[in-house]
Computed example of a mutant assay.
Amino acid sequence: MRRLTTFDCDGATLAATLDEGEHATGLLIVSGGNEVRHGAHRGMAMLAQALAARGTPVFRYDRRGVGDSDGDNRGFAHASADLHAAVAAFRRLAPHVNRLHAFGNCDAATLLALEGRSAGINRVLLANPWTIEPTDDLPPATAIRAGYAQQLRDPAEWRRLLSGGIDIGKAIKGLMKIARTPSQPSTLATRVTQAIAAWGNDATVLLARDDNTARAFTDAARAHTLQTLTIDTSSHSFARAADKQALADIVTRWLAE
């Protein structure tokens, strides 16, 4: 059964959804960016329904200023209180849950990596953690580098270049960004990768193979040995039908470990 509910966070009323299940391990799903708790193309709602049908209680919520929740949206960096309040609400509504796992994509994964332990979460599955501190409107240098490498191996791209089908100005900007990007990871990237490493076996990273955010994370995490899974897709939110199924299979196996 799916229940709509609300809970308080620093005076704001936050909207949430509980998909009920009898298992003692519950899953908290945290939405990334300004995405509502239903997820891209209702992906997180569908995932919650499938897991609850197998007995796992699943709790989702809209952070302050997003979706049906009150308050000001100040981004993931200011959403620690929302996470803590959501955990408390989940435990209150499902008192039989004695182990709490959490899944988040993009900056929700970053939030969980940094704040999940203090919120009382036992294990985390972190999809495409956000490690980028934007300086312009171009993709991260890692993604540009990977894109150029792929294009150089493709004869069709050489024909596009010779026929004027490639934006030379944009290409030059991309090369300049690669040249000026320091080899050391950014402050955010360092904090996130170190935080994930500190979780040890309680953290698993899930990457969309051809997603720019995932590529940036992979580059930033080279100094660490992390538990990592990959879905062969370029969809950041695992929006395609095959991606949704692959994600559901991975989450199901991960919860059963």
Rank of each mutant, 00 (worst) to 15 (best):
R180Y: 09
P129L: 03
D136C: 05
R160I: 09
W158H: 12
L162Q: 09
R145N: 13
A156M: 10
W130P: 04
Y148N: 12
T142H: 03
R159M: 05
T131E: 05
K170E: 14
E133H: 02
D137V: 13
K173Q: 10
I144H: 06
I132L: 04
W130R: 00
T135M: 07
K173T: 10
T131K: 03
K177R: 12
P140Y: 00
L152K: 05
A171S: 14
W158C: 08
L175C: 15
L138G: 07
I132P: 04
R145W: 08
P155R: 02
D167K: 08
P129A: 02
P155D: 03
A179W: 14
D137N: 09
R160N: 11
L175M: 15
R145D: 15
I144G: 03
R180E: 12
P129H: 01
G169T: 09
I166Q: 10
T142F: 00
G165N: 13
G169S: 14
I166K: 09
D154T: 15
P155G: 01
L162P: 06
P140H: 02
T142C: 03
T181V: 06
L161N: 05
A149E: 09
A156T: 06
T142S: 11
I166P: 10
P155V: 01
K170T: 15
E157A: 13
T135D: 12
A143R: 00
W158E: 12
I132F: 03
T135A: 11
I168V: 15
A141N: 01
L161R: 08
L162V: 11
M176S: 09
